[in-house]
Amino acid sequence: MSVGLLFDATRCIGCGACSSACKEQNKLPGVVEAKTTAYTWTTVKSVNPAKPEEGPYMRHLCMHCKVPTCASVCPVLALTKTPEGPVVYDSAKCMGCRYCMMACPFDVPKYQWDKAVPIIGKCILCAGRLKDGKPSACAEACPVQATVFGKHEDLLREARERIRQNPSGYVDHVYGLTEAGGTSVLMISSVPFEKLGLKTDLPTEPPAMRTWQVLSNIPDFVAVWGVFLYGIHWITARRGEVAQAKGPLTKDMDDHERHL
């Protein structure tokens, strides 16, 4: 059973209760910042520059990909996808290569640039609360159910139902269904997703597959290339022996090579 979140941008009032609840739940220092950082794992902001108070508002948080790019690139398995859905982080393993930050198609992992002993910060979908059977802190705190927590298939059905009942009020797409291979966090909106600041040019297959196409061929490659190189050595060494045995030819061959 995998769970996730559904964010409905048409319902969000931009109160910021989710960000505050997240800070409190995850004991993150400081105030809620304008953009997500290692210390602010989710933000809400208006995407209407002309009249910010009218909205719509948009949340930024980890999408919890089904095949997470961050987990696929982490050399030390500090980032992993749990069977329940959250992509979690084990700071005790992390050596700080920041490949996850580079690779994430949604630019989610952030770094503690101000620390001498830094770690990554990202939304972990309140994995600890989930174990106790509770929803994520942000979903629980939302006063208008703009963010709801539930089973992934229930949330997807709910999202499609809302779009079906009000086709003029929604863009006909559930964001996160196909993006980067699909995510545990789903989003629906009345305005095009790129206006919400979401990336709409993402491939539908997980980026991790592109790397795996290369990496999975390494054992075969090593075997073939190793034998090939030894073969070259074998042939050239033998050629050298033959040349030496024939004696006087050696000099001619050297001359010949020099002219090539």
Binding site: V73, C74, P75, L77, K93, Y99, A208, T211, L215
Partner: peptide, 9 residues
């Protein structure tokens, strides 16, 4: 900690 899916590995 081996992750054969990671190029960094």
């Amino acid at each position: 900690y081996w992750n054969p899916h990671s190029v960094m590995f």
